[in-house]
Design a protein around this nucleic acid. Structure first.
Lengths: 239, 239
DNA sequence: TGAATAGTGTCTGTCAGACAGTATCCC
DNA sequence: GGGATACTGTCTGACAGACACTATTCA
């Protein structure tokens, strides 16, 4: 019978084989009427040259948790923190990575296009891929499946929350939120239903400003600081 | 410039430090009007002797994925496969395990009490703990937080699905489902609302049998084989 | 027949869908 | 004023909440 202190003294983690652990994120944005995903060209093996999700290994010195890893990798690529970041799922198995049994903690994230467009534009190894064009390109590992899972989650959550605001700039109009929602869901929604939810959510406040996008000026809104996302008890588009 | 084959030939996973990876499950059941969680007495260090969640390391030879790890560990402890098993979240960080930077893939699962009661009763290192009594015991690592997260998820999903059926035996009455739902949610629900959902779900069929539990006999139902869980577009108990 | 449990009928309230209507802006 | 975009009013329908009602079983 040894004590816990003695046990820990003699413990050597490297004695046990462990899976290859990575953290990958599906970062969505909206641009030119399309929902887009950030893809990164893999600089090194394995699958060098293919497009894949931004991500990488945990830095056990720097990262407080895998959320920190996901954030670190995303800010490295985009220059900013995403407005939304939530754990999606993990994907694991012996066959998904040629190096051996592997495990990825997958996250999904949202950011406005304007917030990171300049940074992305300045690098050649990253691009915003419309989700409708994913079938045509060869993605690394099981990243296609991860993106599909993220898409489902994003669409599901859009039906019972106002999640798409996290794809918009800091200030935005109700029409922009409607358009964002419609692009994500892939179909028109009732403006009236959206506005009802917008008001009931208590998430937003007027900036006092308004913008003209052709005809009548539209009021600008922002997310109230410190207010969490509101989840509704009914879904949109239930048929 | 080396080829992918050359790269893989010379790749040695053990060169890189990696976090300690475990898989833990929160297995719920219902017994004696209480929602209970399976706890296991830790046989070895660290935290030897404390109660914790059933789980352990991935067996890279045997386990096809972390789902397989969760299933393997649960069947070792209970003798049966859970009726429901779904990924919950991952928990990670440098401080949650004294051995170093660690990561656990957490799952939550449901099983009927009758299906595994005999097996659990035969071992002394496992017990079904009512979730209301968790405050009084000293749990290993961050397992209390994991259980709380699982509870929230179970309650949330109970509001928009008939998830509690997976806590019932293969055949059950509508009243049993109502009781299960009420215990999980911690408050009474409208029987009529439950029955409406029960019928609309298309998940069940009558066995033709009925049982007497006092007065009028109640019809027995079972889940239709191969039919997936139905998700409703509204929640119960929205106030 | 009465007590207890199983199961149904039906009214109300809430909120999404639908769409017509009004307001504001620029030409 | 007309056309375009922003925003509101209000009816309908689906379904949860509430609860009274009927049905079946046993003592």
């Amino acid at each position: 019978m040894i004590s816990e202190a003695e046990y820990l003294d003699s413990y050597d983690a490297s004695r046990f084989p462990s899976p290859l652990v990575t953290v990958d994120s599906v970062l969505f944005t909206l641009h030119e009427q399309a929902l887009r995903v950030l893809l990164v060209k893999r600089a090194s093996h394995p699958q060098q040259g293919r497009w894949g999700l931004p991500g990488g290994f945990i830095d056990m010195e720097k990262d407080e948790s895998t959320r920190a890893t996901a954030l670190r990798k995303l800010t490295e690529k985009t220059g900013v923190s995403p407005s939304w970041l939530e754990q999606l799922d993990t994907f694991s198995g012996a066959k998904r990575d040629p190096r051996g049994w592997s495990l990825t903690i997958a996250w999904y994230a949202l950011i406005s296009w304007v917030a990171c467009a300049p940074h992305i534009a300045s690098v050649s190894d990253a691009k915003w891929m419309p989700v409708t064009g994913l079938d045509d390109i060869d993605l690394a590992f099981d990243h296609r499946e991860i993106i599909q899972t993220a898409l489902q989650r994003l669409r599901q959550k859009t039906m019972y929350s106002l999640l798409p605001v996290y794809c918009l700039p800091d200030t935005f109009t109700q029409t922009q939120l409607q358009e964002a929602t419609e692009i994500i869901l892939g179909q028109p929604i009732q403006r009236k239903s959206l506005i009802r939810r917008f008001e009931a959510s208590g998430m937003f406040e007027e900036t006092g400003e308004s913008v003209a996008t052709g005809a009548r000026k539209a009021r600008l809104w922002r997310r109230k600081p410190g207010v969490d996302i509101h989840l509704f008890s009914r879904n949109l588009l239930t048929d």
